[in-house]
């Protein structure tokens, strides 16, 4: 068990190291450097600019400095915002993004699990078909289509909810719904398959034969085992919510980290893109790591070699 956890931790560190290295060399592969513009800057200004962003040192030295800073969770200054460092912007944007993302995950789990179970129990009936149509649509429709549809109907036509911005609780409803569509469909689909699978097991038949009611069997046995399979996909779901949040934050003008990343891309703010990317890689790696480790503890069927 401990060996597995250490192995996963090491892999996580390697992942972050690789992403950071890739980011660093990619940013340095940009021809002409970051300050090349139409207006040619005087030699001295250029030198000072390079000095401020540590671009005068030899490449290997820059690389080491950069990696040491990242290990200290310092993502450096921003090219465009003179007063803000990348850390300031992450500190401002990440809580917002995490709120939207976390709420979406909760909504997806809270609605997806019952939807999947109902579909499995009513296999072949209208509930099953309705859930099948819903999952197919939610998986096939891109996030921005769904988001703009929600915005058009609920904000512009019905005028029930605000169209954009962030702060009041009712401003979170539409973005959270838009963001949870895909994970919701995915969880429902997976939950349906795994519930059907679990219900076919011998121990379910035994439980029924002993006289347990159908609902009790579902609660006590089926649900617990089917839930485990949902745990396995939480990691990829978190990654998916991250990608979705870029689009959703842009549409609903939410001042989250995704919005800052999109802006940094438009502004060609290289240090910001690099910093936010590495930060995202870290967060996602940690999330997946936590999910994987938790999974080992809650699934009694897992026996990792060396843990006996």
């Amino acid at each position: 068990m401990l060996k597995y956890i250490i192995k996963r931790l090491l892999l996580g560190v390697v992942v972050i190291f690789v992403v950071a290295t890739f980011t660093f060399f990619l940013a340095h592969a940009i021809p002409g450097g970051p300050f090349t513009q139409d207006k040619i800057l005087p030699e001295a200004v250029m030198h000072n600019l390079n000095e401020r962003y540590n671009l005068n040192a030899p490449l290997y030295k820059q690389y080491i400095d950069y990696m040491v800073n990242i290990a200290k969770l310092d993502f450096g200054p921003s090219f465009r915002y003179q007063t803000d460092t990348v850390n300031d912007i992450i500190a401002r944007g990440f809580p917002v993004s995490a709120t939207v993302g976390g709420l979406s995950l909760i909504v997806a789990i809270a609605l997806g699990i019952p939807a999947g179970i109902i579909a499995a129990l009513k296999q072949g009936k209208w509930q099953d078909n309705a859930s099948k149509v819903m999952t197919t649509l939610f998986i096939s429709i891109p996030g921005f289509v769904f988001a703009s549809l929600l915005m058009y109907i609920f904000a512009y036509k019905l005028r029930w909810l605000p169209a954009a911005l962030w702060g009041a609780p009712n401003q979170a409803i539409l973005p959270v719904l838009a963001l949870s569509a895909y994970p919701l469909a995915f969880i429902a689909k997976l939950m349906r398959t795994s519930t059907l699978e679990v219900l076919n097991n011998d121990y379910i038949r035994t439980a029924r034969a002993k006289g347990m009611t159908r609902m009790k069997v579902i609660y006590v046995h089926a649900l617990k085992n089917a839930l485990l399979s949902v745990t396995t996909i939480l990691g990829p779901m978190i990654a998916n919510i991250f990608v979705g949040s870029l689009v959703v934050e842009k549409i609903f003008a939410i001042p989250g980290l995704g919005q800052h990343l999109t802006q940094a891309i438009t502004n060609r703010d290289y240090t910001m893109i690099m910093g936010v990317t590495v930060f995202y890689a870290m967060i996602l790696t940690v999330c997946v790591l936590v999910v994987d480790i938790v999974y080992v503890f809650i699934d009694p069927r897992i026996k990792i070699e060396g843990s006996r």
């Binding site: 892999l11 996580g12 390697v14 992942v15 690789v18 992403v19 890739f22 980011t23 990619l26 940013a27 592969a29 940009i30 990654a239 998916n240 991250f242 990608v243 870029l246 990343l261 891309i265 060609r268 290289y270 893109i273 690099m274 990317t277 995202y280 890689a281 996602l284 790696t285 997946v288």
Partner: peptide, 19 residues
Amino acid sequence: VDIIDSVPSMLYVILLMTV
């Protein structure tokens, strides 16, 4: 493959497309 796959491809895509 595992290492590359640990991060959503969107991040790589963003990085590559900016360069």
